[in-house]
Design a protein around this nucleic acid. Structure first.
Lengths: 251, 251
DNA sequence: CTAGCTCAGTTGGTTAGAGCAGCTGACTCT
DNA sequence: AGAGTCAGCTGCTCTAACCAACTGAGCTAG
């Protein structure tokens, strides 16, 4: 693959040059080969991978190259490395996405973008879009769990602040009804990225009683099968968070 | 952080051991420090980072460790490395997520899971959830672009097959109206992951005329401001893809 | 017999130094 | 001026050695 670009000479004239984009780097190749190995051998998450020494022999490259490839795969959650123990197929969770999103948001924030708000609005767009289909469709078991979580919020609100875990569990339990594990993981990743960045940058601080009441509203609407009311309740919830974000403000 | 687990002794009795989960690895530390460097210096995507040699001196670690950290950051899209030129702040796009999702899906598929279907249903859930809010709200400029894309689909359908790019551009232009760059990127990442895995595993093959007509339906409904019809049109579109998936089948 | 310790062996982590490979910018030649 | 050359950056790969974490089996004391 070739790429064309111009550069300025000393005289001031422009010259076109063709440069290779290559990227045909060893570590990159090795990554692909290890991925292929996982697929070809049908290795499940948790299954052991060859040792670094074995991989050197198997792939015919040096230890450094093997390690660089493994580090990259580790960053993607594809492998898991345990010192003194071995290398294993990773959990393939959405954790790396959370990581990437969080960093992107923090970096953007410090450069003056409203990236945190954008992340919140991503969540709002997706969750309000999904809630309507959930109204009246939530399994009884999940409703019971949601009841318990709302009760816990009430108790925690009385103590001063709703725990982050409780909020997270509520959102997780709510969308579990859509019966798509991948979707649940993605939503949870969004939640965690937002939460991490928010506590890092803006400090927390919503009125816990408002938080409790809004979750109770969402649950009631969903249980009642009223799609429109459910959507409004979710939107109000996000409005509340947004307002808190704006007031604690661009710092 | 400590983790407890059991192991079986030769004699058959069980022993509890406490092992450190550590992960207090050098490369991991360095990753954090480089991230911090990007944030502290407010470096924008494309900005140059210190050379490997500079980083060695700056962080007081060996070259290998610096490189392993950079490889990991590269895998997350946080830095971009160009051989013989330098290291730069990466685009922070959703490309790594696409990569991870695609691999996860392929690996799951070969292990007998219906991961590709799950990915499709993730897209379906999110897109059908969003489309209602779009009905009647798409800017005129986007509508014009969508018209052109549908026309192009018609032309391509006559030639035998709708190009993947065209389909992708349609979905991108459609949700652009939600005015959230992050959301657009996420949806595009889902699209690309699905498309990559699908062509790899199942081969393509939808009836191009059906594809064209369904996109035209979606556009018409959105233009007409009919939220319910728009949602149905999107759902039908995904139903079609799902059917094709099932027929080309679990192989 | 059991609980607990020790230690050799395996596996990943880190460092160092050398040489290879790609790109730039200035210099030189025509 | 335009085109080719090359010194000097930058990242890439390899080798070799040693450090650090964990396992499993054997040993010791009770």
């Amino acid at each position: 693959m070739l790429l064309r670009y111009t550069r300025r000479r000393a005289g001031g004239s422009l010259v076109k040059t063709v440069i290779g984009v290559h990227s045909r780097t060893m570590a990159r190749d090795i990554q692909e080969r290890i991925k292929k190995l996982i697929i070809d051998r049908r290795l499940a998450p948790g299954a052991p991978l060859p040792t670094e020494t074995d991989l050197m022999a198997l792939l015919g490259v040096s230890r450094n190259s093997v390690r660089e490839a493994l580090k990259a795969l580790q960053a993607m959650g594809i492998v898991e490395i345990r010192h003194g123990f071995g290398t294993y197929v990773g959990p393939m969770s959405m954790a790396p996405m959370t990581e990437g999103l969080a960093f992107r948001t923090v970096a953007g924030h410090y450069r003056g973008e409203d990236s945190l708000l954008q992340l919140l609005e991503l969540r709002e767009a997706v969750e309000t879009g999904l809630i309507a289909r959930l109204a009246g469709q939530v399994p009884a078991a999940d409703l019971a769990e949601l009841d318990e979580l709302v009760a816990r919020m009430a108790a925690e609100a009385a103590d001063g602040a709703v725990r982050a875990d409780t909020d997270r569990a509520f959102h997780a339990a709510l969308y579990r009804g859509l019966d798509n594990r991948l979707l649940s993981e993605v939503l949870d990743a969004f939640w965690e990225a937002f939460h991490r960045v928010r506590t890092d940058l803006a400090g927390l601080g919503a009125d816990p009683r408002v938080t409790h009441r809004q979750h109770a509203d969402i649950l009631a609407a969903v249980r009642g099968g009223d799609a429109q009311r459910a959507e409004q309740a979710v939107r109000r919830h996000f409005d509340n968070i947004r307002q808190r974000l704006r007031s604690s403000g661009p710092k």
